[in-house]
Design a protein around this nucleic acid. Structure first.
Lengths: 349, 349
DNA sequence: TTGTAGGCGTTATCAT
DNA sequence: ATGATAACGCCTACAA
């Protein structure tokens, strides 16, 4: 036996416990599962518990799953774990699932969509009680369909498309909060940098932004521009803005990561934030403090988003039917003012 | 049936396939598993395959695991997924495991250590073929012991403590690369900001730094200071440095996240980077480009680290014994020069 | 109050 | 070349 092949404890079965406690497996099973319908002598119960402890017995989850034909694993399909926002959602999902006694099987949406062998291994029969899909704005409709054909599924921050319930952030409110902050500072030339064209998340935030601007007389710089969710997209958007005939005095960026790129470009061309232009982004994370300028953000309840999605699925698994989904309005979007926003120069005395 | 309770495809069993193809389950099983030892008529084989396809048969992984008494799931215990470096390691692990046909069960080391119920549910008998532990520098020795008592385990970037093999980065080389870059620029007052005291990772990088400095005449600013792995730790370290009697002209920070905090403090007190002080950090990630100054980094093969750890475990599972672990020297640490490093002022003409 | 036995879906052994 | 059967470990009617 090599050094790496150490002795591992044997795996005692229920039968071992039963025979050591001089009872049948029935009694052992019932006692260890606290079956309320069983009435055993206290002495017997203790013998069983004692035997289990001495043997270091733990039930075999595979056998149990097979017998009860249900699993205690929940699949989580995510895209882009490199985004700090997504890891927060993941924590929320995992926390809520763990509370309910489920473990979490993680998969990447791109890989699942790309290699059918991975998808089928992930969805292998009997493995998953349900699946939570956080797949962003891609062309994942067939993936969602494939998955939900096999097991109960819920979506995170996506169009529920009627078929699968979805947990959603209040994007409209977030967009409005960001824009209203700038308007309150006196800005009228407020640009909007969105995510990829057609993204429902981006669209919601844009709508909030437009709601807010409806109340004021917009300046010529109040333009809308589609970008994407990466920092590079933000760089491109910033360059596009710099080429606009009328420069905005403030920018709402639909995403923190995108905003990183916007800020970097502004700095590199000598546009001062917030002196020349104010920037506010949607989503908060630790890194917001450490960008070229500490960034003012609108914090959204990402952890709760994960929890809510998990809750939706757990309801379905408990036969309660998750309904059409949930829009998370509590806690509401929270403005975190740092150093990237200020009154426009023109209005300063 | 409510809207959310949609019709799900039934789950045909091997028996269904067998009866539809008019063969025994034995044959069906062997054909579908491409058992080379079976010699059936081509016509029969086709009948089985056809029947399986028509029924949409997929094997039940739970039943299979039970029968073969081994699982195709690998547990990944991680700490601090908020760190962009760790998600890269995760991708590497998952990629390698998936190639080998394993799925990945994710758990958080803090939660596993804190709640024994979570640990036992995670380690539930039969569930996991093996576990990969990436638990950082905490007091997780008992966790590691608990886990490795149950299933084969490997460590990521940790002291293997002789018991469990570990995949390690070449920290010494990384520290040396960072310091040599600064020395080549003409710096002699090079400070080092490390991780938490006693961290083996930090110690390795520090050793590399000291190796590099050994060749030159060190200035008074060449101090060593322990911090931690968070941005806040970096802020504290920067403040400590600013209070030193002799200021360094350059700083090696043992971690990208820590460096974010260092840069922010330097900026807030008006110390210009790289004009007044150069900064280089170990580890690269997308955000390095977007900090207060685009940060010069030493990129380490994090994806490969994950792959290697997974490979170690897979070897063990295949009976090949992972040995004492692996030090990843290929690819070597790679310097990525951005804008945070330059020659010291004194040596400029 | 306790025990017997069947079966969850699969694979492996041993016959035919 | 193909099939019957047992067994993986557990839970749960049903029986006693």
């Amino acid at each position: 036996m090599s050094a790496a092949t150490k002795k591992r404890e044997a795996n005692p079965t229920l039968r071992d416990v039963a025979s050591r406690a001089d009872v049948s497996t029935t009694i052992a099973s019932r006692v260890l599962n606290d079956d309320p319908a069983v009435r055993v002598r206290e002495e017997t119960r203790q013998r069983v518990i004692e035997a289990a402890k001495e043997l270091g017995y733990a039930p075999n989850s595979i056998a149990r799953s097979l017998r009860k034909s249900r699993s205690d694993a929940i699949g989580l399909v995510m895209h882009n774990l490199a985004s700090p926002m997504n890891t927060t959602v993941l924590e929320g999902v995992r926390g809520r699932c763990a509370e309910a006694g489920y473990v979490t099987l993680l998969a990447d949406s791109e890989q699942l969509a790309a290699e059918s062998s991975r998808l089928s291994s992930f969805l292998a029969r009997g493995r998953l009680a349900g699946v939570i899909l956080h797949v962003g704005h891609g062309h994942h409709d067939t993936l969602i369909e494939d998955v939900s054909r096999h097991v109960p599924a819920v979506l995170v921050n996506a169009d529920s498309s009627g078929l699968v319930p979805s947990a959603r952030l209040d994007d409209v409110s977030a967009g409005r909060t960001a824009a209203e902050h700038l308007i309150a500072l006196g800005h009228t030339d407020v640009a909007f940098v969105g995510g990829p064209e057609g993204s429902i998340t981006s669209l919601g935030r844009q709508r909030g932004y437009e709601d807010a601007l409806r109340g004021i007389e917009r300046g010529a710089g109040a333009q809308m521009i589609n970008a994407g969710w990466t920092a590079e997209h933000g760089e491109a958007a910033a360059n596009a803005i710099l080429n606009m005939p009328a420069l905005p005095t403030a920018i709402v960026v639909a995403n923190l990561v995108t905003a990183s790129g916007v800020l970097a470009v502004l700095r590199s061309v000598g546009v001062r934030v917030p002196h020349d232009v104010s920037v506010v982004a949607i989503h908060d994370a630790w890194l917001a403090k450490y960008l070229t300028v500490p960034l003012t953000t609108v914090q959204l309840p990402l952890f709760e988003l994960g929890e809510t999605a998990a809750g939706l699925l757990l309801d379905i698994l408990a036969g309660k039917s998750g309904g059409q989904g949930a829009l998370i309005t509590d806690p509401p979007p929270r403005l975190i003012v740092r150093e990237s926003t200020a009154a426009p120069r023109a209005s300063r005395t």
